[in-house]
Write a protein that binds this DNA or RNA. Structure first.
Length: 824
RNA sequence: GCCCAGGUGGCGAAAUCGGUAGACGCAAGGGACUUAAAAUCCCUCGGCUUUGGCCAUGCCGGUUCGAGUCCGGCCCUGGGCACCA
């Protein structure tokens, strides 16, 4: 009971001992029998870059806190970990260091696995896999062929960034200020034939499915996905070419403004533009300039808006009037029809373009109750109103006009009502080496032929050492020279590999049955959906949309039951904020990373985890601070000391408690209550940890020679603290648990419940406001009713000076909280 | 450019519902203990103030008895934009 008995808190030895015990007992192997309720807790698996970074530590500390909490709540928990192991950095590293990408990747995995294990995360390591192994990606190839058979895979031309010096395709990230990052050459756009997955066939389901996620997903992410899918109702309208042959198709959400269309704008890659350029050198030069803009939407949308007339004329579908066709550098070939009708009076971008090039502006909608504007417009009017200058449609409100004008165009055979999506099909071809080979063979006679199932997997050769960025598969006849599976003649194997988003689109399902002899087996249906998914907000759209898409594909090829419970992969989503340093994202390119290894070496895993969970709520950005770590470390020291100085198994509580002991016990149970409510769904770990710190502060004040009842409550408090702490700092919690003489595994010990009786208090302190300003405080019985409170307050002597010269007009009583006296 | 967030003391933050703004922690200052230091413990800690109070949650306005919280407009910072993962 003296401080001499207290051994030093040395996290390094303590943590490795505890971890060894966990491992020997295989404590965190997911059991998944039907005897209990399952909980699948998944953190986004990492790319094995070589070093764990703070974002990982945060992500996995959050996930483990949730998994451990659920385990203590009695659930059968599955919490796996693996590696998103294909990708560009491996090729870059191989080029730089003269290694094979496979070797670099496997070395990194070995190192990072050690780092993760040092953190004491309660993973079922028996399920670990890396996506770059044939055992994993073979099923991806298998699914690709199924999708090909179902017509959900196809080829089409699409644009890539081409580095003319390195003779290779560049990722958007590799284009810096319009130039290739290695060569410095100005990039070009190049159209090549690529493989696509028909995600647009699922657009409506991906959109409506968001409604079922409303409870478990952040509104922010749902909104981003909704906007990304971008369903819009409108009309397809055909403008006949003045020459009489052919039409230009456009999509518009504003058919009501059709009579205000004064020109058409088409994409630089539009076939008409290309055709016109053949006879017009200046137009060709303009298109050539457009070819040197990188393909990313951000680049296209932020460049100076420019256009050039094509000399082509179309006829207005209703009036027959001639309209000029312009090429505009901001019209995207990949969206809609690659052409838009321009209504400068009612679209701000069209307005600016028309002003710049002196094109006519025709007002056709005016706000209800206003006159047709005379003089020069200052800006486009994009709101609703009634139609003008629109012939027989004049006077209609514009919503009615949408339907009427669409019908008129349809009657003329020049259009129809239609739904358009912003979502485009998913281009999965990569002209890269380090990825899953696309299992197709190009035969000059039979066309594209899938690799027969018996020949799967198409194994990616791993012996290459890269000396230039070009994919070695292109130059390896052993890989690409194959007979056609259909006719047996000479054919060429596809050398494109898959987008790495494909691997991460179904790994969550494979974790349920990592050794299955098929892509998935019946275990998937039991464990899925993931009950809690945790990862960075930066994945809010792409990864999370692709994974939702794949889940539906898995269902539709019969690998998941179509029972309505398996339509979505992730029941609940927690998007963690980024770990920032100096206000910006920690990243290698910015050189502002903080290595978590140093933190763990110095303070131990418990401190690292506790600090990172305490510093900010999970969904918020976390601004890094070295100094604040000390605080978490000191706190653990204080808890350690307190428990060791107590040094006994807590005795049972006596039947009656002194007032002092009751007050302390109330604090203990308030803490249990606060921690629990911050764990259940809210995941405000910072507030939960703060509550534990407060409890510890209160327990430290209990004198060593206290009465027996007080010491019994102290023991209850310490025992509770070990339980409450274990999701955040599991190693020290184990040691405290043992020191308090507790039996059984802390990891599976039942989470404590707050005793409602202990929470009761006989009085409450009310705040007294006058006109909303805090003036006095007053203690009243907890069960006092509003009427008696009002009477007591109005008669309360110290209040009178605040009411001098005023007449009371109203008294607002909020029981248990405050009284507001409204006086004049 | 488009879509989505965030902005509270010197710093990270707290405040389930509209009800005491700043819990908890960091940093700082003062003190105790010590031969000394470290560690530990105790106290102070938003600003102004005539010590009555007044002002404060990015800025401007609104709703309300009462707004960090709700509504409208703006400013700044961060994330995503389909080949970084």
């Amino acid at each position: 009971m003296t401080s001499q008995d207290t051994p030093p808190y040395s996290p390094q030895t303590l943590e490795s001992e505890v971890q060894r015990r966990w491992q020997e007992k295989q404590l965190f192997r997911a059991v998944g029998d039907a005897s209990g309720e399952k909980f699948y807790c998944l953190s986004m698996f990492p790319y094995p870059s070589g070093q764990l970074h703070m974002g990982h530590v945060r992500n996995y500390s959050i996930g483990d806190a949730i998994a451990r909490y659920q385990r203590m709540r009695g659930r059968q928990v599955l919490q796996p970990m693996g590696w998103d192991a294909f990708g560009l950095p491996a090729e870059n590293a191989a080029l730089k260091h003269g290694l094979a990408p496979a070797q670099w990747t496997l070395d990194n995995i070995a190192h990072m696995r050690g780092q993760l294990q040092r953190l004491g995360l309660s993973y079922d390591w028996s399920r670990e896999f890396a996506t770059c192994t044939p055992e994993y990606y073979r099923w991806e190839q298998w699914l690709f062929v199924r999708l090909w058979e179902k017509g959900l895979v196809y080829q089409k031309l699409s644009t890539v960034n081409w580095d003319p010096v390195d003779q290779t395709v560049l990722a958007n990230e590799q284009v810096v200020d319009g130039r290739g990052w290695r060569s410095g050459a100005a990039v070009e756009r190049r159209e090549i034939r690529q493989w696509f997955l028909r995600i647009t066939a699922y657009a409506d389901e991906l959109l409506s499915g968001l409604e079922h996620l409303a409870e478990g997903w952040p509104e922010q992410v749902l909104s981003m996905q909704r906007n990304w899918i971008g369903r819009s109702e409108g009309a397809e309208i055909r403008f006949p070419l003045a020459t009489g042959e052919g039409v230009v198709k456009v999509f518009t959400t504003r058919p009501d403004t059709l009579l205000g269309a004064t020109y058409l704008a088409i994409a630089p890659e539009h076939p008409l533009a290309l055709a016109a350029a053949r006879t017009q050198p200046e137009l060709a030069a303009f298109l050539e300039r457009c070819r040197h803009v990188a393909v990313s939407e951000a680049t296209v949308e932020t460049q100076e808006k420019e256009g050039y007339p094509t000399g082509i004329t179309v006829r207005h579908p209703l009036t027959g009037q001639p309209l000029p066709v312009w090429v505009a550098n901001f019209v995207l070939m990949g969206y809609g029809e690659g052409a838009v009708m321009s209504v400068p009076a009612h679209d701000q971008r069209d307005f600016e373009f028309a002003r710049k090039y002196g094109l006519p502006i025709q007002v056709v909608v005016v706000p209800e109750g206003e006159e047709i504007p005379s003089g020069i417009l200052e800006q486009a009017y994009t709101g609703s109103g009634r139609l003008v200058h629109s012939g027989i449609y004049d006077g209609l409100d514009n919503e009615t006009a949408k339907a009427r004008i669409t019908a008129a165009v349809a009657a003329a055979g020049l259009g129809r009502k239609t739904v358009n999506y912003r979502l485009r099909d998913w281009g999965i071809s990569r002209q890269r080496y380090w990825g899953t080979p696309i299992p197709m063979i190009h035969c000059p006679r039979c066309g594209a032929v899938p690799v027969p199932e018996k020949d799967l997997p198409v194994v990616l050769p791993t012996h290459y050492h890269l000396d230039n960025p070009r994919s070695p598969l292109l130059d390896d006849p052993e890989f690409h020279q194959v007979p056609c599976p259909q006719c047996g003649g000479g054919a060429r194997r596809e050398t494109d590999t898959m987008d790495t988003f494909v691997e991460s689109s179904w790994y969550y399902a494979r974790f349920t049955c990592p050794d299955a002899a098929a892509m998935l087996d019946e275990r998937a249906a039991r464990w899925l959906p993931v009950d809690q998914y945790i990862g960075g907000v930066e994945h809010a759209v792409l990864h999370l949309l692709y994974a939702r898409f794949f889940n539906k594909l898995l269902r539709d090829v019969g690998l998941l039951p179509a029972d309505g419970r398996h339509d979505e992969p992730f029941r609940r989503l927690l998007t963690q904020g980024m770990v920032l340093k100096d206000g910006g994202k920690m990243s290698k390119s910015k050189g502002n990373t903080v290595d978590p290894q140093g933190l763990i070496d110095r303070y131990g895993a418990d401190t690292a985890r506790l600090f990172i969970l305490f510093a900010a709520p999970p969904e918020q950005h976390l601004e890094w601070s070295d100094a604040a770590v000390e605080g978490a470390y000191r706190f653990l020291h204080r808890v350690w000391r307190l428990v060791h100085e107590y040094g006994q198994t807590p005795p049972p509580l006596p039947a009656t408690l002194s007032a002092e002991a009751r007050d302390l016990r109330r604090l203990v149970h308030q803490c249990i209550d606060r921690v629990s409510s911050n764990m259940d769904g809210r995941y405000h770990f910072n507030a939960a940890i703060a509550a534990i710190m407060e409890l510890n502060n209160a327990l430290m004040k209990v004198p060593g020679e206290a009465q027996a009842d007080l010491r019994a409550v102290l023991g209850e408090g310490l025992r509770s603290m070990a339980l409450l702490l274990s999701p955040f700092a599991p190693h020290i919690a184990e040691a405290l648990w043992q020191r308090l003489g507790q039996e059984g595994e802390l990891s599976f010990a039942p989470w404590p419940n707050a005793d409602p009786e202990a929470l009761q208090s006989s009085t409450v302190t009310l705040v007294i406001q006058v006109n909303g300003k805090l003036r006095e405080r007053l203690e009243v019985p907890a069960d006092a009713d509003a009427g008696s409170i009002e009477a007591v307050v109005l008669a309360y002597p110290p209040l009178q000076k605040h009411l001098a010269g005023l007449s009371v007009r109203k008294v607002v009583v909020v029981p248990g909280r405050l009284v507001n006296v409204v006086a004049q």
